[in-house]
């Protein structure tokens, strides 16, 4: 049925979101349309997954909205849009950040990596494969953020960056269960797949469960 009509789940969702946006009576949006002067825009060049994108953006555009709405990379998810849930986690110059809490214009010249840049359906990143193997999700909404965060967590432990649960600040942190749990606390999973997520990360890290 779906193939006959050539609609995709993504298309339906995008169409639905657009309809919802038009139907809202958000005062901020109404105010914007009544303004005689358009909001300030800036030219921005973003390096995302090795591809350069030149955009002209409203200064207010977050990196998250630039990725999803302008570059059409919808793997990165918008959850809370205030830095509490971690669904929007991406890697910038190899470090994980909340893409909802930074302006796109501030990320010019940085190397941005999203879940689409980690692996592809035909060639999964080891962390993506481990999440599938260990069932590290139910609904999957937080998963791209979890995976980006997990990749960075292993790098942070290997780089010797301590955490709240590291017993000795002057020693190298270990790839232990408690370390992984503490470091992943900025990624919320409403379905509660945490134990399987830890198993997936532990396997990729090559540590004992």
């Amino acid at each position: 049925m779906a193939s006959e009509l050539e609609i995709t789940r993504r298309g339906v969702l995008a169409g639905g979101a657009a309809t919802a946006a038009m139907a809202t009576t958000n005062p901020a949006r109404a105010q914007m349309t009544n303004q005689t002067t358009p909001p300030p825009t800036v030219p921005v060049t973003l390096d995302v997954n090795g591809t350069s994108h030149t955009l002209n953006l409203d200064t207010r555009t977050s990196l998250l909205d630039a990725l999803r709405e302008h570059i059409k990379l919808t793997g990165t998810k918008k959850g809370c849009d205030q830095g509490q849930c971690g669904a929007c986690t991406v890697l910038v110059d190899g470090k994980r950040i909340n893409s909802c809490l930074t302006l796109a214009v501030m990320q010019q010249g940085k190397r941005i990596q999203t879940v689409e840049g980690l692996g592809t359906p035909d060639s999964l990143h080891p962390m993506q494969a481990a999440f599938v193997k260990h069932d590290g999700y139910q609904c999957g909404y937080c998963t791209p953020g979890q995976i980006c965060s997990a990749v960075a967590v292993i790098a942070e432990i290997r780089a010797g960056i301590p955490s709240h649960v590291t017993p000795d600040l002057t020693a190298k942190p270990q790839l232990a269960d408690a370390e992984i749990r503490e470091r992943m606390s900025g990624n919320i999973c409403r379905c509660g797949a945490y134990s399987n997520i830890v198993e997936a990360i532990t396997e990729v890290a090559g540590a004992k469960a």
Partner: peptide, 21 residues
């Protein structure tokens, strides 16, 4: 090594993503 109270305070705050920013 020398200001452990500061390292510990920082690591007790926010999340890994936020501390990177």
């Amino acid at each position: 090594r020398d200001y452990g109270v500061l390292s510990r305070a920082l690591l007790a705050g926010a999340s890994g993503q936020l501390r990177n920013m």
